[in-house]
């Protein structure tokens, strides 16, 4: 790992100021960033730790939404969201392994937008709002492809506001080596309709499967999607699965998620 300067501010305002330095980068749980720095895929000149910022920690209920601080760990979400949003708690409790969940954060996961990460599917399927130090971004506008988001240089995800669905479920088909999602599907049902978001499958990262949303909004049943097909074009292909295999998994897992959501 190359050397860098390190600052650990105690407020969002101080962190934003520190991120004004050249080649500065925020450090949240570090479960992706630190391994990337060891491999010299990343070499920031300044690391701005978000771990000492109290206002970015924890969960709170706001009406029909759950607001989660950007620096809240997966382990905390897995524990604290169980009553308000069980499908999200379950998703958080299946990320990585226990030690990774004790460090990794929701804000870090969303900002990284790994094409196989779980949280982007939850944010997109719930139509979440990504709250940053300077604005609010709809999830539909936030995810912009492989490791790419609407975030500007030095912009921090301070919180995420997720509308709580009436029914929801996340199905994760794990890649057996990395334990990331080979394909993951989050289905969320609201009074106004159903949203379906898919992670792990597409070379462009998380996406909404709109055909399934229409079919499920019409009739929320697992067999409502069996007649649909997902295009294999644009899907990831590697030794763990061909594009056609992943495309089929999207349909199968969507059906399973609907069945599990009841």
């Amino acid at each position: 790992m190359q050397s860098f300067d390190f600052v650990r501010p105690s407020s969002v305002a101080e962190a934003v100021a520190a991120l004004g330095a050249e080649d500065a980068q925020p450090l949240s749980g570090g479960q992706t960033l630190l391994p990337s720095m060891k491999q010299r895929l990343a070499a920031p000149a300044v690391l701005v730790s978000l771990s000492g910022i109290a206002e970015m920690q924890g969960l709170r209920r706001e009406g029909d939404s759950l607001v989660i601080g950007g620096a809240t760990t997966h382990a905390t979400v897995a524990r604290a969201a169980r009553t308000d949003f069980p499908a999200l708690a379950e998703l958080a409790g299946n990320i990585g392994d226990p030690a990774v969940r004790n460090r990794g954060t929701i804000g870090g996961s969303l900002a990284n937008n790994d094409p196989s990460a779980c949280y982007p599917a939850a944010a997109l399927a719930t139509g979440a709002t990504i709250v940053t130090d300077r604005r609010q971004i709809a999830a539909d506008d936030f995810f912009q492809g492989l490791f790419t988001t609407a975030l500007e240089e030095g912009e921090i995800v301070t919180a995420v506001r997720l509308p709580i669905p009436q029914r929801a479920n996340y199905q994760k088909f794990i890649q057996p080596a990395s334990r990331f999602a080979l394909v993951g599907v989050f289905v969320a049902s609201y009074a106004g309709g159903v949203r379906v978001a898919v992670t792990g499958a597409s070379g462009d990262g998380v996406f909404r499967w709109t055909e399934a949303e229409a079919a499920l909004s019409d009739r929320f049943a697992a067999d409502a999607v069996t007649g649909l097909t997902v295009e294999a074009e644009g899907m990831i292909g590697d030794l763990h699965g061909t594009p056609a295999y992943r495309a089929n998994l999207v349909r199968v897992l969507t059906g399973r998620a609907v069945a599990a959501a009841g």
Binding site: F6, G30, Q31, L34, P35, L47, P98, A99, N102, R103
Partner: peptide, 8 residues
């Protein structure tokens, strides 16, 4: 529990 190789 934390992986001490992945924490500064």
């Amino acid at each position: 529990a934390v992986k001490s190789c992945t924490m500064l």
